[in-house]
Amino acid sequence: MKKIGVLDYGSGNIHSLAMAVRKIGRDVDLITSPEQMWQVDNIILPGVGAFGRVMQKLKDKGFSDELIAIIRAKKPVLGICVGMQVLFEFSYEFGKQEGLGCLEGSVDEIPRYDINGNLNRIPHVGWSDLIYQREDEAVEGIGELFCSVNNYESFYFIHSFSVSPANSSISVAHTIYGGHVLTAAVRQGMLFGTQFHPEKSGSVGLKVLENFTCF
């Protein structure tokens, strides 16, 4: 059976993520050292809180360089929330911060005002519709992150910053908040990222996790 590694480096809701992966019938390894990453089939990189702190913890535990090597070796990796944001080159949270740079682009603050000029409440918290960039994103068959998930299903988001990929073609899905388009999911080869929390998005979220473990 496939073994899914969840990076346990002191950031992110490891407990519920591990429970969610178990729920879909996969083996879970909590990964506490960089070498362990090579012993699992797929890797999930959780992350909550400030970008800079998450990056610092990845570096402190020796994960950042090894993670880049794992991604180059094309092992399937899924970054969730800030775990996705750190895959990008840099963030503007508390000044310019460097990320892992596996995906080109930056992490920017969600606009403070909605498109009508009213205050946008930040963080963006709650269930929002996920809108695919391509109509056929949910096609049946192994190999798509959103296979068997309908367009416009709601997923749970909780974030103050959002990613702006340099190459818009890596953006797979978006959501709309205060009239602004926010990137909700990205894919480049075997590297995946979701701004929403699949482990907190009920049965559709579990389906996305299951799809990821099929790669």
Partner: peptide, 11 residues
């Protein structure tokens, strides 16, 4: 809390 999050996948 720990028991709840075993089977419940919402915030």
């Amino acid at each position: 809390v720990a028991k709840t999050t075993k089977d419940i996948f919402i915030p």
